[in-house]
Design a protein around this nucleic acid. Structure first.
Lengths: 208, 208
DNA sequence: GGAATATCTCAACGATTGTTGAGATAGGTT
DNA sequence: AACCTATCTCAACAATCGTTGAGATATTCC
């Protein structure tokens, strides 16, 4: 009977411990910023590595491939998205305002919150992973969050999908295309313009 | 006094005439489809040339560079955009419906009409030319087309910018991200959902 | 101190990109 | 016919991409 412990029991390994330098997090931050700024196709491993002050091969060693690195950034995105749901509860007559404000406020806050979403938006055009994630966010997450606020309607998926797409379009116009009349307007002013429209989509009658 | 004519007067040149093979138009069509499907960064000269059944260097000979080829496709886009303006005239109480329908109908018609716009949309993320063109379209063209219909309002640029961005977001959700609940809905059904919202943005009161 | 393990750099690979120059081919003029 | 011009192909360039393997450096346990 050997004295060496079983492989599964108490590894108690010796040697250097993983993740002690913090470079992994620095790379992740740089990747998040690059993906947000240039999208999946535009961002390169070499530029991300340069931003992090690290060799490109180290990025590969940590994350395996560009796709897996992007996947790591996207998993951060998911946690950011989950914070939307909480903001939607309240009286139905002001649902449009709450949804609109929750949507717009994310993009005016900490870049560390908006960057993952920008990365997903910009990459949705060139990367299937980002595209399907954005699709699932609009279709499932947002619908699940909004539908309970409208228990008497049957077409909540359609209404939520339309409202979400239009709000995302607003972000595209304001943050990516940079339409002057949208950039110059502050969040609360935009909410006053948009909230009634979102309210009409979510709760308005659907006349034939 | 030489018998040869002056360089600027009556060229009357001999030799083969330009544009007799039609390859230039075939390349332009292939480029339009590729830019629409994969955006500026994703589309490559070699793939475009392969689609057109032509060598890649011929594309360069005709258009000079990838940027100039993209510029040629964008100039087609401008002519497509110009047809928007005509659809907006009419009574103010139904302006939202006309704008919404005009917007959505372009994407359900002939691909030769929607492809240039899709190319501009998809490329706006990776190419400054497409981005600034889309920005100018939303800010100037659409505002100029909608403003005359709302002579009594002062913030028409803001209202038109918001409405346009939201409608573009709808196209992004329906044609690029492919949100199921938007894809399955037909144009007229979407118009009934969206027109009241667009109407609210364009003509609604802006309460403080 | 060694031994083991993780972090990190260096150099290079194969593929793909936009682009270029030379030359072959086709069509129009005299 | 000869001549000119435009169309088009072929081969290759330099740059950049993601990715890989080997080795140097740092950290932890014995």
């Amino acid at each position: 009977m050997p004295t060496t412990p079983a492989p599964t029991a108490r590894p108690k390994r010796q040697g250097r411990r993983p993740g002690t330098s913090g470079s992994r997090q620095v790379i992740l931050d740089a990747a998040q910023a690059r993906f947000a700024q240039e999208g999946y196709a535009g961002a390169t491993i070499r530029k991300i590595a340069a931003d992090a002050g690290v060799d490109a091969s180290l990025v590969m060693q940590f994350f395996g491939s560009k796709d897996e690195l992007f996947g790591a950034v996207m998993s951060i995105t998911l946690s950011t998205l989950s914070r939307f749901s909480e903001a939607f509860e309240g009286p139905e007559h002001s649902l449009g305002e709450r949804v609109t404000r929750a949507f717009l406020q994310v993009w005016d806050g900490d870049p560390k919150d908006s960057e993952p979403l920008l990365a997903m938006l910009r990459s949705a055009i060139s990367n299937e992973q980002a595209s399907s994630q954005l699709r699932e966010f609009i279709q499932a997450r947002l619908t699940e969050a909004i539908a309970p606020q409208l228990p008497h309607l049957q077409d909540t998926a359609t209404r939520a999908g339309i409202a979400s797409s239009m709000l995302i379009g607003l972000v595209v116009g304001r943050r990516i295309v940079k339409v002057p009349s949208l950039v110059s307007e502050d969040t609360e002013s935009l909410v006053r313009y948009i909230a009634p429209a979102v309210q009409a989509i979510l709760t308005g009658g659907h006349d034939a």
